[in-house]
Design a protein around this nucleic acid. Structure first.
Lengths: 229, 229
DNA sequence: ATCAACCATATTGTCAACAATCTCGTCGAC
DNA sequence: GTCGACGAGATTGTTGACAATATGGTTGAT
């Protein structure tokens, strides 16, 4: 990091984006402490910028902020991940229904394209591609629905469960299970069948919930440092 | 305000609560500027505390924070209020369904009580009481559902639309229209009929949406000061 | 060996002064 | 009369030093 010192406003953005990225990449474990000075050195910003970024992340539920004790990566239990997914089911159901009614031609074309690429990715066993397409599908439907409020809520909820989504996608046989569900959502939205789209979206997320429920609660580290493997 | 200077951590809480209260009471109009120094003098805190409180409020969507231009009370359009209510419909539908399945005896008793008091309030034409019961009903169902994530989301969404709820409740004939809907929700939850509870909750909020859609978009003041009446 | 009190250090919280930027009224040219 | 440039004042943004608090290890008594 040979950047010159980054000024505050940018610093806040940079630290926020940086932590988000590392969190998604699994480079920061749940429960891990986030020390302000460390972060300010890592990202080449001031402590104030780090502080503000941590506030942002706490507001998004990615970080837990305990007064006088600092910040740590928030631990999300399987139980909470299930609840989050239940909310997603409700909201994505809404989006799918609306998208079926009001998506433009470009959106429908994109959805068809995503469906084809997904099928191919599963055939070829390309998990990374499938995972990326998965996110793109959900995003596209949310955007096509015109429900900006729901889209924002979903963004936030997704941010909290990326870790789980990731683990889930790696299970053998999971893509083969979810592919037909995704295709059913796409089909219903593209053909404009709102009720079917909502039902398909809900069914898909119910399936995710079932998988989550079968996830063992792994003992997350709670000490000041992450347990050594 | 003859308080001694309030220390930072408390200050943040006080300013946040204070602005929230004034916002709910309609003492702060949408679009109104919130000047940091003014607020710090009003609440007897430092500017830092005000700054942090404003960040909190912005994260909740109650305040709009424009870099280098300060904070103002966020203007929520009728269109956005409709979208928010659509999300509420999805989430409260979820809560109602779950509450029907998992509410405890105490919760069911409270719901019955709320129903009786609501009927009485409408008979007596006590709008304030009815409005308070309305909120209590929604809160109770959310809590009884055990869906804490949904409960939090709903809290946030409700905070943004209090102004609209308030205007709506004052319309002549509105309570008589919404009372049977509320009673239907209560009945379904109390008797444990999840599907009916979800349907009733959705129907109720669809009715709210219809009322909102019939609300004229009033020209909100956008200047540095609120327009004089 | 166990436990509690204590202290050094690491870390977060607070503040007030300073810097940067925007707003809005004033002035002048056309 | 209209438009644009300019500048004073108001407002937000940034910084670094200082204060308050928690942490973890050390010491000494039992």
């Amino acid at each position: 990091m040979a950047d010159g010192q980054v000024t505050g406003q940018e610093g806040r953005r940079i630290v926020g984006a940086g932590i988000r990225a590392r969190l998604s990449a699994g480079e920061m474990a749940p429960g891990q402490r986030l020390v302000e000075q460390e972060l300010s050195e890592t990202f080449g910003t001031t402590r104030s910028a780090v502080r503000e970024a941590l506030q942002d992340l706490a507001a998004e539920g990615l970080v837990e902020l305990i007064p006088r004790r600092g910040a740590r990566v928030r631990v999300i239990s399987v139980e909470e991940a299930v609840q989050i997914t239940e909310c997603r089911a409700a909201l994505e159901g809404l989006c799918a229904r609306r998208a079926a009614a009001s998506a433009g031609d470009a959106d429908r074309a994109e959805l068809r394209d995503i469906g084809e690429q997904m099928s191919r990715a599963v055939t070829e066993g390309d998990l990374d591609a499938y995972s990326a397409l998965n996110r793109r599908l959900h995003d596209t439907i949310a955007r096509a629905s015109g429900q900006e409020v729901a889209e924002n809520l979903l963004d936030r909820l997704n941010g909290q469960t990326v870790r789980f989504q990731f683990r889930l996608a790696l299970r053998p046989g999971r893509p083969a299970q979810s592919l037909p569900q995704h295709l059913a959502i796409i089909e219903a939205v593209v053909t404009g069948d709102g009720a079917a789209a909502e039902a398909a979206a809900r069914a898909h997320l119910d399936s995710v919930i079932a998988e989550l429920a079968a996830t063992p609660e792994r003992p997350e580290p709670v000490g000041s440092e992450v347990a050594v493997p």
